[in-house]
């Protein structure tokens, strides 16, 4: 296990990394997500749980710069002044999406270039930002592949030759190589075997902690939320019905829906 030493005041950063105010998105008459507000601080891991269709993925897309919300604002504070990611120019938003944060998709096909080698997938963000030394790009890609436990000799293989768990780990390396401050994950363990999930979860847990990453993880799996997140937000029909510390929400749920969710699983 890699060593992480957090400074004593790590939790007391002066300003939030992300401030979400009254974010809503509609699909015609239907509510995607409505009136969501919260703050995310550096190094915090927030889980969003709820059933399919509860609006958690819609919210994630709004937060990650993919879908513009119909109302509300998403303020990101990278360095310096916070900026509303939907009022900056699209160019700036795209730049932020490539450098300041990253998205790990549920389906690796959405997050990887399937006909580009593993090394190329990891190196892309470096080349995006202007790195032009092949040897150095390769070296960093190799380092990141090792950190997500992909053997160096698989570096020039294409992701379609990888197992589901490897593809997911590759996606993580591809995002983390640019050292973002924030990572969005949409059901990162969805569709994986239980044994493969465990490995991935442990890897994520260690990476998030060692890099001091802030993360927002959408999942319907409460065990995943328990293991990875500090805070939890429970969504139902597009609304946040309950939020708080992860263990508070799971061990002492107050809202009827959360009680239903936590009682529906055997033991988390």
């Amino acid at each position: 296990m890699t060593v992480h030493v957090s400074p004593p005041d790590a939790a007391l950063d002066p300003a939030p990394l992300l401030s979400i105010a009254r974010v809503s998105r509609f699909y015609g008459e239907r509510i995607g997500c409505a009136d969501v507000s919260f703050e995310l601080w550096p190094g915090e891991v927030l889980g969003i749980v709820g059933e399919s269709g509860s609006g958690k993925s819609t919210l994630l897309r709004c937060l990650a710069g993919i879908d513009r919300p119909d109302a509300g604002e998403v303020l990101f504070r990278g360095s310096g002044q916070p900026l509303d990611i939907y009022s900056v120019a699209e160019q700036e938003r795209r730049r932020l999406m490539r450098t300041a944060w990253g998205i790990v998709h549920q389906n690796p096909r959405d997050g990887l270039r399937m006909d580009v080698s593993a090394g190329g997938n990891v190196g892309e963000r470096l080349m995006d930002r202007g790195d032009r030394h092949y040897g150095q790009i390769r070296e960093r890609a190799l380092d990141w592949l090792a950190r997500v436990e992909i053997a160096g000799e698989r570096m020039d293989d294409r992701p379609r030759q990888f197992s589901g768990g490897m593809q997911q780990r590759l996606q993580i390396a591809r995002v983390l190589v640019s050292e973002p401050k924030l990572v969005f994950m949409d059901e990162p363990t969805g569709g994986l075997d239980v044994s493969v999930q465990a490995r991935l979860l442990d890897l994520l847990r260690v990476l998030v902690r060692d890099l001091g990453l802030a993360a927002i993880i959408v999942t319907h799996d409460l065990a995943v939320a328990r293991l990875l997140t500090d805070r939890l937000m429970v969504m139902k029909d597009g609304h946040v019905v309950e939020q708080g510390l992860t263990d508070q929400v799971l061990d002492d749920p107050h809202h009827a829906y959360t009680q239903l969710l936590t009682s529906a699983v055997l033991s988390v």
Binding site: P8, L12, D230
Partner: peptide, 11 residues
């Protein structure tokens, strides 16, 4: 707030 609770727990 959660992060204060976490800091209290940590230290």
């Amino acid at each position: 707030v959660p992060r204060t609770v976490l800091d209290i727990r940590r230290r």
